[in-house]
């Protein structure tokens, strides 16, 4: 399974068209804003993660992220251990 690092909302759009349903999507940087629309984008919350510092800095509330889990850098490391390839999406 692949891991997708999504750095922007546009990046999420590009990624969702090309990801396998089982792949995990980690939203970081301005990509965390995209979590507000995750349900519209057909990304089940159990396949999505948010980088906690980036979400907190941008004021993404627990209500806004809903069932999407947050991870710190250790959590990101753990995701990279079990996924390959790792794909970055900025645009």
């Amino acid at each position: 399974m692949s891991l997708h690092l999504v750095f922007s909302e546009q990046g999420l759009h590009s990624c969702l068209k090309r990801k396998h349903p089982d792949d995990i999507v980690l939203m970081l940087d301005d990509g965390v804003y995209a979590c507000l629309k995750w349900h519209q984008a057909r990304l089940p919350s159990d396949k999505a993660r948010l980088l906690s510092a980036d979400a907190k800095a941008r004021g993404i509330s627990d209500a806004q992220r809903g069932a999407i889990e947050t991870v710190d850098y250790d959590g990101l490391v753990a995701l990279t251990e079990v996924h390959s390839p790792i794909v970055s999406w900025k645009d």
Partner: peptide
């Protein structure tokens, strides 16, 4: 198409996006 692109990604060891 998109499913073929999905397969391309999954069948790669390394993806270089470069943006």
């Amino acid at each position: 198409d998109y499913p073929a692109q999905q397969a391309l990604i999954r069948n790669s060891d390394v993806v270089i996006g470069g943006q």
